[in-house]
Nucleic acid binder design. Structure first.
Length: 300
DNA sequence: CTCGATCCCTGGACGC
DNA sequence: TGCGTCCAGGGATCGA
């Protein structure tokens, strides 16, 4: 469930608490979510965490070159690199005292130069971790779309209105926009009064402009509230977020729409639970793939 | 290329 | 109390 606001919250917390620290050791448990576990074990010790940034739903730990690396060494340790971390559904990356008991499902321990440990915990292991050189990282990041907070109105409209897929699927597609997940897709569609099953190409320019605006507004406010804690999201300080109190659609099936009082409904769109107000967000006409006889097509 | 379906994984909620 | 079933959903993959 960590989406852009939650990842931003964690990244900011880690920037404060572990940027500047050096990684002294790496210990791994289960590794099926790590691209190349041996590379993580081999290349991280000795590197300093220079900064923690967010890219879409990823966190990037910017790593210094290894202090002891020989300039012409061929293993890449004389160059800066990054650790890419995706929290998946249930991932947490939290610094704590080394003596502190380990949470269940802790799979990675980074020993830091101040005696603490940065631990990665992830019960479902939907997350991802990868050690990447600058070159591989750049390549990796080309697969992703625009940052929803930075995208211009023109580019947003282009990315959405040129596609026939359902708007919900487009919002969730990380190669269209990077960082939007199920909660903030539903919240922004409710605010824009757009049904999740509408096609991208179906949106008017005005609707696209409205959707971009409310999406940015929702994401900014969610960041200020330190994200939404639905089940177990906690930030880098172990604090829950507050934005779930502001949800207008997500998780509100059967409850009354804040605008019109109609019961919020839940349907599956793009394979995901989608919450919407059937009155404020009118459904598109049911699609009859190949019938052109619209005139006589009255539905009983 | 585009789009939709399926699968991965575990914990928690719920029904009996 | 316990057992079975379903659901949560980001994203990789596959087939049409």
């Amino acid at each position: 469930m960590p989406e852009l606001p939650e990842v931003e919250t964690v990244a900011r917390g880690l920037q404060k608490s572990v940027a500047g620290r050096r990684i002294l050791s790496v210990r791994l448990g289960k590794t099926d979510f790590i691209d190349d576990p041996a590379a993580v074990e081999q290349h991280l010790p000795g590197r300093q965490i220079e900064a923690v940034e967010r890219y879409g739903k990823f966190m990037l730990l910017r790593l210094s070159a290894r202090a002891d690396a020989v300039a012409d060494s061929e293993n890449g340790d004389a160059e800066a690199a990054s650790l890419l971390v995706h929290l998946g559904m249930t991932g947490q990356l939290v610094p704590c005292a080394a003596a502190q008991p380990c949470a269940k499902h802790t799979h990675v321990w980074f020993g830091l130069d101040d005696g603490r440990e940065l631990r990665y915990t992830d019960p479902r292991r939907f997350g991802r971790m990868a050690y990447l050189t600058s070159e591989l990282l750049a390549e990796e990041l080309t697969a992703f779309g625009a940052d929803p907070l930075l995208v211009s109105a023109e580019e947003f409209a282009l990315r959405v209105r040129s596609r026939n897929a359902q708007i919900k699927a487009l919002l969730l597609n990380q190669s269209v926009l990077r960082g939007v997940g199920n909660i903030y897709a539903d919240e922004s569609l409710w605010r824009a009064k757009i049904h999740p099953a509408r096609r991208g190409a179906e949106l008017s320019k005005k609707q696209a402009a409205t959707l971009r605006k409310v999406l940015q507004d929702v994401l900014r406010k969610a960041i200020l509230a330190r994200g939404s804690s639905i089940s177990d999201f906690l930030d880098a300080e172990g604090q829950p977020g507050e934005y779930q109190r502001h949800h207008r659609a997500y998780g509100r099936e059967g409850k009354r729409c804040y605008r019109c009082g109609t019961a919020i409904r839940r349907v599956i769109v793009a394979g995901r639970s989608s919450y919407f107000c059937p009155k404020c967000q009118p459904a598109p006409r049911s699609r009859k793939p190949r019938s052109r006889n619209i005139k006589n097509e009255t539905r009983k």
